[in-house]
Every structure is written in C-alpha cells, then in structure tokens.
Amino acid sequence: MKTEKQHIFDKPKNVQRVLYGLFGTLVLLLALEPLVHKHPYFAWEEWFGFYAIYGFVACVLLVLAAKYILRPFVKREEDYYD
C-alpha cells in the first residue's frame, strides 16, 4: 500500500518552527520601536507598544465577546428557518 506523501505541516517540528518564527518576529517588532521616529496624532500613540497591546487585547476581547456573549444569543439549529 502506498503511503501518502508527507506534507510540510504534517511534521509537528515544522509547526513548531512557525510558532518560533512568530514569537521571534514579535520580539523583533517591539525591539525596533525605539528606533523609529513617531509622528503621532493622539497621545496614546506615544506609549511604548501601544499598537501591539491594542491588537492583542482587541482580538482577545473580540473572541471572548463573540463566544460568550453573542453566540449564546444568536446560535440556532441549521434548520431553524425551514
């Protein structure tokens, strides 16, 4: 019997590499921040890591709100309207 070809993400090691790549990028992005010249419109844009924190918190809140607040209200069986 022919075994199926191994694909890139079939190896857990490759998945792990992607994750390490992500974490490395994050550290790099924060490390670069002091080096760039900011031209902010709002005061909070000057805080260190504002965009990073905002993006992270926004997404966590988004998922939690969608899962625990919206879904219990709106979820119905697939044949609800039939």
């Binding site: 992500l22 974490f23 924060l30 890591g49 965009y51 990073a52 993006g55 926004a58 966590v60 998922v63």
Partner: peptide, 15 residues
C-alpha cells in the same frame, strides 16, 4: 512598524 505590531500581535492572540 505599527501596522505590523498590530497585526502580528493579533496573530499571537489567535494562536
């Protein structure tokens, strides 16, 4: 840089 921070940290949240 800020756009990448926003996006990559969103990706972190997802992960």
């Amino acid at each position: 840089l800020f756009q990448l921070q926003l996006l990559m940290f969103s990706a972190l949240a997802f992960t």
